[in-house]
Simulated scan of single mutants.
Amino acid sequence: MAVQHGIWKIGDSPQALPTIKIDNELLLEEQIFKDISILNSNWLLIGRQVFTDFGKYIDLLAIDASGSIIVVELKKHKTPRDVVAQAIDYAAWVETLPSERIVQIYKDYAERWNVSEKSFSEAFCAKFGVAPTEDDVNSSHQMVIVAAELDASTERIITYLNDKCSIGVNAVFFSVFQDGDNQYLSRAWMIDPAETEEHAVQVAQKQDWNGEFYGSFGASPDAYSWEDARKYGFICAGGGRWYSKTLFMLEPGNRVWVNIPKTGYVGVCEVLERVKPTDDFIHASMELDGSYKTIEEAGEDRADYFVPVRWIYDVPQSQAVNEIGLFGNQNSIARPRTPKWDYTVNRLKELWKV
């Protein structure tokens, strides 16, 4: 079913704003280029008009904190079915790219468009707060079609690829509304972006998961307190669904090795209960140093979520383990399948006598 947009101006009676035709979809590409958060605030733009090995150009190329590459293709003059086929064709090419090629694509992009961060590593660190790892960069990919509308047949194809084939392809629809001299851009996703992330196509089969979870704890002076987590037995995440949704993977009995980005590993814990929001975890008797958002004040998507745990071993931040060769990732919870993760767990077991 076609996605419909509407904006009403509030007054004595609601006034529907008229839509206007996007005369040139390059204008839409330009807006996304200037601010990729129009699509997703958790993406980093790494390429524009990327020249492929078969002589065609990818409109936009982005990456998320997990290293997943996102192919963004605007409909422009193409038919709806053609643009989906084009995106899949581009994704097949992206799948073959080694990490050094991704680095070069970003370098060319930064030079051509005068981006402040000139190297891929610098840009990745600035955006996500951690350094990219060889194993994660281009470990999976997704496809996003940008259009004013798609026909019903194309929407069925995209839905089928997601639901039946677990292929990460999505569509985002934009409309422009006029209000006097002002114009407003409206966006609607065809499929929840979180579902597309879950269906991101794995580029290569990794080694078997060792059963140990990785956890990233975003300790900071004005947000989460690591000492709160040690004292009251929890790990947490929030500020957006991208950060909190991975907590829902955890079940009682799971073991999590916790890392504070840019600081190091600070503990290992056993999960006691499933995830719960701040509203159901924090109580008045707790003496907290950190600040945590409730559903009531921030809404379900941006609230903080907690997983009650028992600390098997934990240390203050000043004693965090930060060595070359240890695994790092921005995901709040992850199931790494790289040799580096096996090394990390074994090294921490050795240091902490776990």
Score class of each variant (00 low, 15 high):
Asn138Trp: 05
Gln86Ile: 01
Glu251Leu: 08
Ala204Met: 06
Asp163Met: 13
Phe51His: 12
Lys231Glu: 10
Cys236Phe: 05
Arg310Tyr: 04
Ile10Pro: 07
Asn259Ile: 04
Phe327Thr: 01
Pro261Thr: 02
Leu28Ile: 04
Gly267Leu: 03
Ser37Lys: 06
Ile7Trp: 08
Ala303Ser: 01
Asp181Ala: 13
Met286Val: 07
Ser186Ile: 08
Cys125Gly: 11
Lys21Glu: 14
Val321Asn: 03
Glu117Ser: 10
Val94Ile: 09
Ser68Asn: 01
Lys293Thr: 14
Gly211Pro: 15
Asn40Leu: 06
Pro221Phe: 08
Pro80Ser: 07
Val71Gly: 05
Val94Ser: 02
Ala303Leu: 00
Gly253Arg: 07
Asn259Ser: 07
Ile282Ala: 12
Lys349Arg: 14
Asp301Thr: 11
Val130Ala: 08
Phe173Glu: 07
Lys75Thr: 08
Lys21Ile: 13
Ile46Lys: 00
Ala298Ile: 09
Ala298Tyr: 10
Gly239Ile: 04
Phe54Ile: 14
Lys164His: 05
Gln205Trp: 08
Glu100Gly: 07
Arg101Trp: 06
Arg274Gly: 09
Pro98Ile: 01
Pro252Tyr: 02
Phe124Glu: 02
Asp136Glu: 15
Asp228Gln: 06
Pro336Val: 02
Ser318Ile: 10
Lys276Asn: 06
Ser99Phe: 09
Phe124Asp: 04
Ala334Pro: 00
Ala303Asn: 00
Asn40Phe: 07
Val144Thr: 11
Gln15Asp: 15
Leu326Cys: 06
Ala92Gly: 11
Val275His: 00
Lys75Pro: 01
Pro80Met: 03
Ser285Met: 05
Phe327Cys: 03
Asp108Tyr: 11
Pro18Lys: 11
Arg337His: 12
Ile102Asn: 00
Tyr343Cys: 14
Glu287Phe: 13
Met143Leu: 15
Arg347Gly: 06
Asp280Ala: 15
Thr196Tyr: 02
Gly215Asn: 02
Gly290Arg: 04
Val268Tyr: 08
Tyr214Trp: 12
Thr96Val: 08
Glu227Val: 11
Asn210Ala: 09
Gln317Pro: 03
Ser116Trp: 12
Gly253Ser: 05
Lys107Tyr: 01
Leu61Tyr: 00
Glu300Gln: 13
Phe51Arg: 11
Met1Leu: 12
Ala237His: 02
Gly299Thr: 02
Asn331Asp: 14
Ala152Ser: 11
Leu185Asn: 09
Ala147Gly: 04
Arg81Cys: 08
Arg302Ile: 07
Cys236Ser: 08
Asn254Pro: 03
Lys78Gln: 14
Val137Arg: 01
Asp136Trp: 10
Asn42Trp: 06
Ile324Gln: 15
Ile10Met: 12
Val94Asp: 03
Gly299Glu: 06
Val271Cys: 04
Gln4Arg: 10
Lys340Glu: 15
Val137Tyr: 02
Val144His: 05
Phe248Gln: 14
Gly168Ile: 03
Glu198Ser: 13
Cys269Leu: 05
Ala92Arg: 11
Ala2Thr: 09
Val130Trp: 04
Glu197Met: 09
Gly129Ser: 09
Ile235Lys: 01
Ile145Thr: 02
Ala110Glu: 00
Val146Gly: 05
Gly299His: 07
Val275Met: 04
Asn162Tyr: 04
Arg101Ala: 09
Asn322Ser: 15
Asp208Val: 15
Glu195Thr: 14
Trp242Ile: 13
